[in-house]
Computed example of a mutant assay.
Amino acid sequence: MITIQEALDLVLSQKQSYGIEEIPLTEAVGRFLAEDIFTDRDAPPFDRVMMDGIAIHLADLQDSLKPNYPIQGIQAAGSPQMNLIDTSHCLEVMTGAILPINTNTIIPYEEIEIKGGKAHLNIEKVAKRFIHYQGSDSKKGEKVLGKGKQINTGDIGILATVGQAKVKVAKLPKAAIISTGDELVDVDQSPLPHQIRKSNVYSLWASLHQDGIQAEMHHILDDKEALREKLSSLVKDFDILLLSGGVSKGKFDHIPEILEELGVQKLFHRIAQRPGKPFWFGHHEEFNTKIFAYPGNPVSTYVNHLFYFKQWLHASLRIGWRFETKELGEGIPGNPNLARFISVNLDHENGKAFPINHNGSGDLFSLAHTDGFLLLPQREGDYSKGERFPFIAVR
């Protein structure tokens, strides 16, 4: 067995750039920017009215307001800029409109009454307010989004504002997710007493989907010839294969043998960790395919994917990635032979991580109550309360 760090180094040694592509803005959420984004003009591009009401010219903050202001006209949003000709008058203004020339203060409708063509004020003094000044958010030419950022829903609005109808993003690998085993049935089927529904492939699909990867799902029965035939095709057709199950020491765990028969170079099999010890990782040089073959227990699959694959993907996309650390909320015994990913809940007041009880790596339902995993290194002594360790969040 190798250590977690040795395994991670081998995984990252296979990082792979897949190039850049330009996609429509409507398809960009979740993708990783391949360019810096700059504002094409000031934001906002003009002094913008922030409240519905009237615009007046206030010469001095200490000036008393007039009891009423005759209304010269209405400055609507989207209309060309108007000019307040007489500073003893006012203009009605709508939220989002350009601030009229010769005005510097907005008084909301809530503080006035309009009658007889005049705005009657129910306040005596007012500050210069409710104006969103030009360039106060961002100046023209300022970088607002950086290369490598994963585009979220808020970023979509920014990209639209700066005119990015198309966005350059990192091209993603073509992925296939493969489950194996005679005991698995589709999610819409009723299992027999000795069967279970597929779950790992859906967790993996959802995780890839979060990163913009649209993966295909496949299932292969525990038959060596069927495994060999199907995997031979998939290795040629995809950039990455994610397998769940068939890599332990059981008599029907044929995956490692078949992958090597197909010319896949094994980089490691078995890591000194719990859960997920039987993880198998390899590379097919001719087709440049990376194979992540996870053990079948759901928590083992899940934590290996979050820790190893996520770091590989970010390295491949040339995006920095570092897990935050959390403080252990209580002491627990050490383990000199195995590093451990322990399921934890976070105290939402102080952020400390507390281990939770569950039924091992086969307990899928424990994930419903898990905020994430602390990575505890191999150690002779105990892990002490208050120590900080890498935290892998459940996403």
Rank of each mutant, 00 (worst) to 15 (best):
N345F: 04
P295M: 03
G212T: 04
D382L: 07
W280C: 06
K326N: 01
K66V: 04
N200A: 14
G245T: 00
Q265D: 15
Q150H: 04
H194W: 05
N102K: 07
P390S: 05
Q214R: 14
A315L: 01
P67V: 13
D223L: 03
I258F: 08
K66I: 10
S233H: 06
L306G: 07
A7H: 02
H314R: 13
A368M: 06
V394I: 15
D237H: 03
P173M: 14
A272N: 03
S207L: 11
V201G: 08
R48N: 10
G146Y: 13
I56F: 13
G245N: 02
D237M: 04
Q16R: 15
Q265H: 14
L313S: 02
S138F: 15
K66D: 12
Q214G: 11
G96P: 02
S79K: 11
G212Y: 12
G117T: 09
V126E: 05
R379S: 11
Y109F: 10
D239H: 08
Y383S: 05
P67Q: 07
V29K: 11
G381Y: 07
F354L: 01
S13K: 13
L231C: 12
P24H: 10
K125V: 08
R41W: 12
T95I: 09
I291R: 00
L145R: 15
N68G: 13
D363E: 05
I319M: 12
R228Y: 04
W205K: 15
L328E: 01
K128D: 01
E286T: 13
W321T: 10
L317G: 00
A76R: 13
